[in-house]
């Protein structure tokens, strides 16, 4: 039987359909679609323009950070500090603008803060070999405390001369009546997806998560990439913080509290594996969307909000169960 070289090169283990059917993000997406169809019939208030607008906007803050978190998780790391970094960046933005500076200066201050914190986390993890869990747990505490120091633990709701610009940035709907945060999220998701699939940097993230030792031996600049990935994660929290500040119109030192768990949940539900080497931008978005749909629908169906944690927690465990089943199958 003559198999030509071209045939061998073209030979795939799976066609696109079986790849799709094996993708966790795809099944989560289907679950969301089914839930949405069900809810539109079961309730009067789900498929209203107002509710859809709210859901899509609420997804975004988690989704934006889940994109950064997914990259960290792909390398086999974790970033617990994102909720606090969001808070600190929001506060830097608020305090800067409150003091009379322009919105550009405020955003620059917030982004710079994020990058410095990310670099600090990254250097400790990559160059000094500290465990990511511990470093970012420490930063979770530090960043929120710094936010309290920066604001003297007050609520900031006056943002100086560019007050209205900031509120429009986060609360507006400039394109086809779609909430601005949704547009930002889609753009960031496309960017993340592009980086993961089409760049050397993205390829190296998967390599590090798959076998860090092998990546090092073959000359992948593992340490630099790890620093970069924690900077990206902090940056995503910073961006979410800026957008959320504009939307809320006020910043307290509680903003983003506990958000790290929701973000990690979104990434994991979307198929990112905490052992590293697996994850997609699409997964981060659908993971965040599923959590928001659950939260929204419980309210609409008149189920006590105390049940929320049970549903979201179950989703996490089911997601991990799917991963286990796939692992067991592939080792057969």
């Amino acid at each position: 039987m003559a198999v030509t070289l071209d045939q061998t090169i073209a030979q795939r283990q799976h066609n696109w359909l079986s790849t799709l059917l094996k993708s966790q993000a795809f099944w989560v997406f289907i679950a969301i679609v089914v839930a949405c169809i069900f809810l539109s019939f079961a309730t009067n208030s789900f498929a209203t323009p107002k509710n859809v607008y709210n859901i899509t906007r609420n997804v975004t803050f988690t989704a934006i950070i889940a994109l950064g978190m997914t990259m960290v998780i792909i390398t086999g790391g974790i970033d617990l500090s994102v909720g606090s970094v969001l808070c600190l960046c929001s506060m830097m933005l608020a305090v800067t603008m409150h003091a009379g500076w322009s919105i550009e200066a405020g955003i620059a201050a917030a982004i710079l803060t994020a990058l410095v914190i990310g670099a600090f986390n990254g250097v400790l993890i990559a160059y000094l070999g500290f465990p990511p869990f511990v470093v970012t747990l420490g930063m979770l505490s530090i960043a929120r405390s710094l936010a309290m120091v920066a604001s003297n633990n007050t609520v900031v709701f006056q943002f100086g001369p560019d007050h209205d610009k900031l509120l429009a940035l986060g609360g507006g709907a400039w394109v086809f009546g779609i909430a601005n945060p949704v547009i930002y999220t889609l753009l960031l998701a496309l960017l993340t997806g592009f980086i993961l699939r089409w760049t050397k940097f993205g390829r190296h993230l998967y390599a590090i998560g798959g076998n860090e030792h092998a990546a090092t031996l073959t000359g992948v600049p593992v340490r630099m990439i790890k620093v970069a990935v924690y900077m990206i994660s902090a940056l995503s929290a910073g961006i979410a913080g800026i957008v959320e500040t504009g939307w809320l119109g006020a910043v307290t030192t509680n903003i983003g509290a506990g958000m790290e768990l929701q973000v990690i949940a979104a990434a994991v539900i979307g198929g990112a594996s905490l052992v590293g080497g697996v994850g997609t931008a699409f997964g981060a978005i659908v993971g965040a969307a599923l959590i928001e749909v659950i939260r929204n629908s419980l309210g609409l169906l008149g189920i006590n909000a105390f049940w929320q944690g049970t549903f979201i927690g179950s989703c996490i465990i089911i997601a991990v169960a799917f991963e286990r089943v796939r692992q067991l199958r592939s080792t057969d």
């Binding site: 998967y206 390599a207 798959g210 076998n211 990546a215 073959t218 080497g277």
Partner: peptide, 16 residues
């Protein structure tokens, strides 16, 4: 061998 299990053969050949 320094291989990444989660990547394809080609990706491993060209790693780095």
């Amino acid at each position: 061998l320094a291989l990444c299990n989660n990547l394809t053969a080609a990706a491993n050949v060209f790693l780095g």
